Computed example of a mutant assay.
Amino acid sequence: MKFICLGYFDEAKWAALPEAEQATLMEECMAYDDELRRGKHFLGGEALGAAANAVTLRMKNGGVDVLDGPFTETKEILGGILLLEAKDLNHAISLMSKHPGVKNGPFEIRCADETINQQIAQRNKQFNQ
Rank of each mutant, 00 (worst) to 15 (best):
residue 20 A to C: 04
residue 20 A to H: 11
residue 21 E to W: 03
residue 21 E to F: 03
residue 21 E to M: 04
residue 22 Q to C: 08
residue 23 A to R: 15
residue 23 A to Q: 15
residue 24 T to F: 06
residue 24 T to N: 07
residue 25 L to T: 03
residue 25 L to P: 01
residue 25 L to A: 06
residue 27 E to N: 11
residue 28 E to W: 04
residue 28 E to C: 06
residue 30 M to A: 15
residue 32 Y to S: 03
residue 33 D to L: 09
residue 33 D to E: 12
residue 34 D to W: 07
residue 34 D to P: 02
residue 35 E to T: 13
residue 36 L to D: 00
residue 36 L to F: 00
residue 36 L to K: 01
residue 36 L to W: 00
residue 37 R to S: 10
residue 38 R to D: 07
residue 38 R to G: 05
residue 39 G to T: 04
residue 40 K to N: 11
residue 40 K to S: 08
residue 41 H to C: 11
residue 41 H to V: 00
residue 41 H to S: 10
residue 43 L to V: 07
residue 43 L to G: 09
residue 44 G to T: 00
residue 44 G to Y: 02
residue 45 G to P: 00
residue 46 E to A: 14
residue 47 A to K: 09
residue 47 A to C: 09
residue 49 G to T: 12
residue 52 A to F: 02
residue 52 A to V: 05
residue 52 A to E: 11
residue 54 A to D: 05
residue 56 T to H: 13
residue 57 L to T: 05
residue 57 L to C: 05
residue 57 L to M: 13
residue 58 R to G: 07
residue 58 R to Q: 11
residue 60 K to Q: 15
residue 60 K to T: 12
residue 60 K to S: 14
residue 60 K to W: 14
residue 60 K to D: 12
residue 61 N to K: 15
residue 61 N to H: 15
residue 61 N to I: 11
residue 62 G to V: 06
residue 62 G to C: 06
residue 62 G to F: 09
residue 63 G to A: 15
residue 63 G to M: 14
residue 65 D to W: 15
residue 66 V to L: 09
residue 66 V to D: 05
residue 67 L to N: 13
residue 69 G to V: 06
residue 69 G to E: 04
residue 70 P to S: 15
residue 71 F to A: 12
residue 71 F to D: 09
residue 73 E to M: 09
residue 73 E to N: 13
residue 74 T to A: 09
residue 75 K to H: 02
residue 75 K to N: 00
residue 75 K to E: 01
residue 76 E to Y: 06
residue 79 G to F: 03
residue 79 G to L: 04
residue 81 I to C: 02
residue 81 I to T: 02
residue 81 I to D: 01
residue 81 I to M: 05
residue 82 L to R: 05
residue 82 L to F: 06
residue 83 L to D: 00
residue 83 L to S: 02
residue 84 L to G: 00
residue 86 A to E: 00
residue 86 A to L: 01
residue 89 L to K: 03
residue 90 N to C: 00
residue 91 H to I: 06
residue 91 H to W: 10
residue 91 H to L: 08
residue 93 I to G: 03
residue 95 L to F: 04
residue 96 M to R: 05
residue 98 K to M: 07
residue 98 K to I: 01
residue 98 K to C: 07
residue 99 H to K: 05
residue 101 G to D: 09
residue 103 K to A: 14
residue 103 K to E: 13
residue 104 N to G: 09
residue 105 G to Y: 03
residue 106 P to R: 13
residue 106 P to D: 07
residue 107 F to L: 10
residue 108 E to C: 12
residue 109 I to P: 04
residue 113 D to R: 12
residue 113 D to H: 14
residue 114 E to C: 04
residue 114 E to P: 01
residue 114 E to S: 10
residue 116 I to F: 15
residue 116 I to L: 13
residue 117 N to W: 10
residue 117 N to H: 08
residue 118 Q to K: 14
residue 118 Q to Y: 09
residue 118 Q to L: 12
residue 119 Q to A: 08
residue 120 I to P: 02
residue 120 I to D: 04
residue 120 I to H: 09
residue 121 A to L: 15
residue 122 Q to I: 05
residue 123 R to A: 11
residue 124 N to K: 14
residue 125 K to N: 14
residue 125 K to A: 14
residue 125 K to Q: 15
residue 126 Q to G: 08
residue 127 F to R: 12
residue 127 F to E: 10
residue 128 N to H: 15
